[in-house]
Design a protein around this nucleic acid. Structure first.
Lengths: 343, 343
DNA sequence: CATAAAACTGCAAGCGCTTGCATTTTTGTT
DNA sequence: AACAAAAATGCAAGCGCTTGCAGTTTTATG
């Protein structure tokens, strides 16, 4: 005997064909739906499939056709709300279209970004969806043209590439303006990696709003964390420790805001009485914050879904021509006019 | 020409073999590591692989060997913190062991639980990890024996099955006792689906502690939500609306606690001054709550990791003999002695 | 040194499916 | 009814890899 797999007694196409009294090609074609088979056969095949409870072998299909009906999804950290929602939307949409997805966190120590991609490629994925900055632009460019790519939250040009982007500048300006209109003049900004395009855009909006209102830009009011709660808390701590004074704080994302909120609480600074807080993303936790957080809503699940649609379109050669739905400023209870006391 | 895949110019085993001047079998064996090849060849093969940047074709490998090096992971909702962390641990560990994982949310409308499993099975996964109650016991039993299974948070017996469980009763009693020792006598309980084994265990612990302290069990203080924040909020609203009075609240999970916290805030009830709050899970959001939530720590990432290890052991025929690390009660700032005023 | 045992190696037969091509059946037209 | 065109079918050759078996080389032993 030669190298055959432990059969597991799985039902194969051939079993179905035999049962239905037709050739395997007919069954295959019936299954693919691309080529019509006569009704008579169709019925017999359907019956055989049902009776045998046939389940196609994906590996064989992939090997024979060169298409795996699988798409890779690269994220930074599945466990975070942000990526979690994105992935959820993508997974949902993809599986509704008959694709399976392989989700990978790039975060894993010891694996380079490219290693993740290479694993995906070895798995014969038909395309990969890159969430946010899971892959650096440099790493990304390595793969352009080698495999269909859709990137959400990062710019990318090339053949077989779709990139879904939002304009963060305008909405950040709007968020900042909200604070200004409330009467705040000393508004702090807590960002993340300063080179990160998202952070840059949000900071830019912030400056624009300041400038438009004739307010000075004060380096002292800017701090960067890591876009995680702990980093946000530390950033606020640094500002406070060095004596920077502010009555409002614009956090580049909700995680930052969450951390900032905690640090403020630790120091007995009330929100929004002493300082108003604005976040960005509208994570599930934002509306659950005490007080509920004023933020910018970025529909993540839908974003993931759109990315998936874009991928499906790309893979089926159709044109994809939808863009992310607009960002939305959501005022909740963490912002209020400054009071002229304390701090 | 016959049905061959759009080659994509991928490097194959055969290319490597030719380049190295050996047979494909040798290369295959070199790669598998199971059978030694002579050093001389080994070196040549390694060189050829590197030079050609060879990447094995997983589909072919799966088809030929009957093993896919893929495991399915079933969750209820990847986007939730709870499942997100679980999945993260599993994915991390699995990929470190050379497995790829296919993560599926069962939540998807229109797909039955079994459909998810069947997709996984069609994908030739070598085994599947079921997170919590992603699959009902009934659905689960369908698959016992058909495929290696590891279940975390649910009991399951059978060949090729491992189930990882924690004892929630004792720790729930401890959490409740904490409240009692603080001086609370009217302690509310907010659960989830009442038939859910997790909820049952937590409620049981709660009752045990009450009984041990000689405190009466009051039906009026029990409400069930859906283990999500919104359900927790509604549960608290119902209790308050019908005039139930309590100075402490034990939530069956942190999501519940988060929702409860918000509802309390809405009604001007201070935490912990007016009512103390205890959660369960220690989600990332728990320590970020205002005030930080007293809860039971259940190391989810580690749980996912252990589940993955169990699966790897199962698949390699080794015995797996580790259990979940013990639950830990974490006291933070949401609990305090009751004050004899109000409510 | 001869010879048996052990260690390698290559051959070739699949794994279950898709698909180009040739063949057969059906359909439409005069 | 006859024939061309269109539609449906079957054949069989792979897709890239693993693996039993048999042949070859190496190593150990007497």
């Amino acid at each position: 005997m030669t190298g055959q797999a432990p059969s597991k007694g799985a039902v194969t196409l051939e079993d179905v064909a035999e049962q239905a009294g037709v050739s395997t090609s007919s069954v295959s074609r019936y299954l693919s739906g691309k080529v019509r088979v006569s009704d008579k056969r169709g019925v017999r095949i359907a019956a055989a499939i049902a009776q045998l409870n046939y389940q196609p072998n994906t590996a064989a299909r992939t090997l024979a056709s060169g298409r795996s009906a699988t798409v890779g999804v690269l994220t930074q950290d599945i466990a975070s709300s942000f990526y979690g929602e994105l992935v959820k939307g993508a997974e949902d949409e993809l599986s509704a279209s008959g694709y399976t997805c392989i989700i990978t966190s790039v975060e894993r120590k010891g694996f380079s970004e490219c290693a993740c991609m290479d694993v995906l490629l070895g798995r014969q994925v038909d395309g990969v969806i890159v969430m946010g900055h899971a892959l650096s632009p440099r790493a990304l460019s390595e793969y352009v043209g080698r495999i269909p790519l859709v990137v959400i939250g990062q710019k990318l040009k090339g053949p077989q590439c779709i990139s879904l982007m939002n304009d963060y500048v305008a909405i950040s300006a709007e968020a900042t303006r909200h604070l200004i209109e409330l009467g705040h003049t000393r508004i702090a900004f807590v960002g993340g990696l300063p080179k990160h395009s998202n952070v840059i855009a949000r900071l830019k909006g912030y400056r624009q709003a300041l400038q438009a209102a004739g307010l000075p830009f004060d380096e002292d009011l800017i701090e960067h964390g890591d876009m995680l709660a702990s980093g946000g808390a530390r950033a606020v701590a640094r500002m406070l420790d060095r004596g920077s004074r502010f009555t409002a704080l614009f956090a580049a994302n909700d995680e930052n805001a969450l951390g900032a909120r905690l640090e403020l609480y630790r120091r007995g600074i009330a929100v929004p009485d002493d300082v108003s807080l604005v976040g960005f993303d509208d994570l599930p936790a934002a509306s659950l914050m005490i007080p509920p957080l004023t933020t910018v809503r970025q529909p993540m699940v839908e974003g993931g879904r759109l990315a998936a649609q874009a991928m499906v379109a790309l893979l089926s050669g159709k044109v994809f021509d939808v863009s992310l739905s607009p960002l939305q400023f959501i005022q909740r209870e963490s912002t209020a006019p400054p009071r002229t006391s304390k701090l």
